[in-house]
Design a binder for these strands. Structure first.
Lengths: 139, 139
DNA sequence: CTGCTTGCAAAGGTTTTGCACGTTA
DNA sequence: TAACGTGCAAAACCTTTGCAAGCAG
């Protein structure tokens, strides 16, 4: 908790209960919630908080690189407190989004793309879609 | 032209001038236009066409797999008449989106992801971001 | 105390919908 | 002619903004 406070301070972000609560929630989940989901889940604890605050806070966190914004092809964004860019995979059946780490081929892919396009790459967003093991079973 | 007509017919889509015009435009560009862009560009030829028609048409084309919808991280979607899934790269300076073909590492990546997650993969969206060769020069 | 943050309400932009009319097959 | 597509306007939806009041540093 204190750690999160310091992270915010280090980025010259004022520490408010709302911010901490949003940041904390994102740090403690791997569920990639949307702004709406974050709002709903925190609303119990902070009934006066508005959606606008959630968006402003998320915006601040994203701008400071403390959280990343995902565009999984839904109407809304999802957020991930894991800042290291990593591929995501979404189950088209239960809609959950799962992180992937240490995907070795990514480095190779990046290299191939850079050579092929002559672009100076900054980052990438890699999204996979399919059916998760659980959903494959109870069909 | 006739070919496009037949493609539509094969998918039980009635052939209207508006549809043909939208489909044709998408087939003849590599620019990945948004709905708004498509609307504007076709509006000269069909001044009475409405944006709603553009959306409904695109929706139909996407549902029938004749066009793919891209989510490059803007507020709106972009469309690509090239149905074979392929990675895209967007210049963060001039905002153009470029197609990539025959990226060999993708197959490897797909295999690695499938093994790692045990998902049954259906498709993927691979977006890269960076500065294109042109924009790298006139800085 | 000063500037940043909050919360409300209203606006913005994209996409969707309902419905009457027109058109395709 | 029956079903589907079009066009208009209005609605829905997510997100942003303006501004007054509140709070952190």
């Amino acid at each position: 908790m204190l750690e999160l406070t310091n992270i915010l301070k280090d980025h010259n972000l004022k520490v408010t209960p709302q911010r901490l609560s949003i940041f904390k929630m994102l740090k403690n989940t791997t569920a990639h919630p949307s702004a709406e989901t974050i709002y709903t889940s925190i609303h119990e604890e902070y009934p006066t908080m508005s959606l606008a605050t959630v968006y402003k806070t998320l915006d601040a966190l994203v701008k400071h690189g403390l959280v990343q914004q995902l565009n999984v092809g839904e109407d809304s964004y999802r957020y991930d407190a894991d800042t290291l860019p990593h591929p995501h995979i979404k189950c088209t059946s239960c809609h959950k989004v799962v992180d992937m780490y240490r995907v070795k081929s990514v480095e190779l892919l990046r290299k191939e793309v850079a050579e092929m396009t002559q672009f100076k790459l900054s980052h990438e967003q890699l999204y996979f879609y399919g059916t998760c093991p659980e959903c494959q079973n109870h069909t």
